[in-house]
């Protein structure tokens, strides 16, 4: 074997990817899927897909950004599959997703949304505790709302892309994002911005 032929093999050794980027990819995945075993599987699938698609690596991006792009596709694929599976259990799921309703019969707020203005958002976002609260609130979302919400902000996908990925109509998607945001606002109000717990349905 000539030196030229050796080169690609040396450059593409998935064992070094695992060593160099395994923890990074794992943390990235865990920030989105929140389940250890699912995040581990995603890392494995990513490295395997990268190995199988190694000819597609142009060298114009870094190894890590190339691997991260593959991981993002894997996360999208997973969410797409999950959301479609959950769509078949629709009636019960839909009722659960819509169960948190902060409006009264007259369509007014049951309780005035709390004022988040006393803190500095940038300061909040520099604190690990803020992100822990954010993730705890995400975890409390019904599964499909969680997947849709996370996917919407993964790599700043446009709403149209999310619809295409998940096979949803724009109206479906808007309803789900709206419900997720009402719950997230309530949860962050109670757990980060110090609002008192409200009576009625929990968010």
């Amino acid at each position: 074997m000539t030196q030229q032929e050796m080169k690609p093999l040396a450059a593409f050794d998935p064992r070094t990817w695992l060593e160099r980027h395994g923890d990074y990819l794992y943390r990235f995945a865990l920030g989105r899927v929140r389940t250890t075993s699912v995040a581990e599987d995603l890392v494995q699938e990513t490295l395997l897909a990268a190995w199988q698609g190694r000819d597609g690596f142009s060298g114009s991006s870094t190894e890590r950004s190339w691997l991260t792009a593959i991981l993002k596709r894997k996360i999208v694929d997973l969410f797409r599959k999950r959301v479609r599976e959950q769509a078949t259990l629709s009636p019960a799921g839909d009722a659960e997703e819509g169960a948190y309703d902060p409006f009264d019969r007259g369509s007014h707020w049951k309780k005035t949304p709390s004022d988040w203005g006393h803190g500095n958002p940038a300061e909040d976002m520099n604190r690990a505790e803020f992100w822990a609260t954010m993730h705890a609130c995400l975890d409390k979302l019904p599964p499909r709302l969680q997947d849709v919400f996370v996917l919407r902000y993964l790599d700043e996908q446009s709403a149209a892309e999310v619809c295409k990925d998940l096979g949803l109509t724009p109206t479906n998607l808007w309803v789900m994002l709206h419900r997720a945001r009402l719950r997230m606002s309530c949860c962050l109000s109670e757990n980060w911005f110090g609002a008192t717990k409200r009576e009625g349905p929990s968010c």
């Binding site: 794992y26 943390r27 865990l30 890392v43 976002m125 992100w131 954010m134 700043e156 606002s185």
Partner: peptide, 24 residues
């Protein structure tokens, strides 16, 4: 105001690989 901040935080979250000590 809440939505704006939630939106901003969510976009910010997308850029960061959870800044934790989690390891494989």
């Amino acid at each position: 105001k809440q939505l704006r901040m939630l939106h901003e935080a969510s976009m910010h979250n997308a850029d960061r690989a959870a800044n934790t000590d989690d390891r494989l």
